[in-house]
């Protein structure tokens, strides 16, 4: 085999077993539908102990990554980012962990409105679901992109954090809050209950838009046939 070939070829989906595949894809589809239309409807999924945080990965992909955004804007997210490799203030690290629905609702309203495309562009999303026996639940990770379709309902950057936001944005003043596409990685820790599910933990990484790695770009024919994903996502029409 070539030394320039990863032994573990990239696949778009992994579900540890067939039982959690449909339920996790249903969950993600429904969740993001509400996220795009009315986030407050999601607050019932969280308990007072549930945790939510955003992490901004502002590293710019190489220009040789297809469609990569070389001038991304994170102005709406930076004041909420809990990326501990960038945020040195322990007070900020603690404050940016939202505990319970009330704290989450403030963050939900402070970041841009979005549109995901799971239904019309399912190939642009990748998902892994693994059981989590310590909580009798499972952990779902989704990778993909969303469009920023509108300014936040509550723009906290127009208040006291405006100066700080500029300082951490490397001088992109006027473009801080440009609405564009973003790539993301989102992880839910889900605990089934008798009648539904509870989200015990949710972490969202927002990063510059870039074409995803799991879609085969047009090019040379691969030397070996590609195996099919174990289970395609079930998307409601």
């Amino acid at each position: 085999t070539s030394i320039y070939s990863i032994p573990m070829k990239i696949q778009p989906f992994f579900f540890e077993n067939n039982e959690i595949g449909p339920s996790s894809t249903d969950f993600v589809t429904n969740f993001l539908n509400f996220w795009d239309t009315d986030r407050m409807q999601l607050l019932g999924l969280y308990t007072p102990q549930s945790q939510f945080s955003i992490s901004v990965d502002s590293s710019i992909p190489p220009s040789s990554v297809t469609e990569s955004d070389q001038n991304p804007s994170f102005g709406y997210y930076l004041s909420h980012s809990r990326n501990i490799s960038k945020v040195s203030s322990e007070k900020s690290i603690e404050q940016r962990l939202s505990l319970g629905p009330e704290a989450m609702s403030e963050v939900f309203r402070a970041i841009p409105k979005t549109k995901h495309h799971l239904q019309d562009m399912p190939d642009e999303y990748s998902m892994e679901t693994v059981t989590y026996p310590q909580i009798n639940g499972f952990i779902v990770t989704l990778h993909g992109f969303f469009e920023e379709t509108g300014k936040p309902d509550a723009d906290t950057n127009n208040k006291s954090s405006a100066g700080r936001s500029r300082r951490f944005n490397h001088g992109h003043n006027s473009t801080n809050n440009r609405l564009f596409k973003k790539s993301f990685d989102r992880t839910w820790v889900i605990v089934p209950t008798g009648t539904g599910v509870v989200v015990a933990s949710e972490m969202l990484t927002v990063r510059p838009f870039a074409a995803n790695a799991w879609v085969q770009q047009p090019g040379p024919v691969p030397q070996q046939p590609q195996p099919q994903p174990p289970l395609a996502p079930q998307i409601d029409p």
Partner: peptide, 24 residues
């Protein structure tokens, strides 16, 4: 590898931690 983002949550009652990491 170069680390670009780290976040983590301690999951109450489970003695476990979930890490969310981005790197290149």
């Amino acid at each position: 590898h170069a680390l670009t983002a780290v976040d983590y949550h301690v999951i109450p009652g489970s003695n476990t931690v979930v890490f969310n990491v981005n790197c290149k």
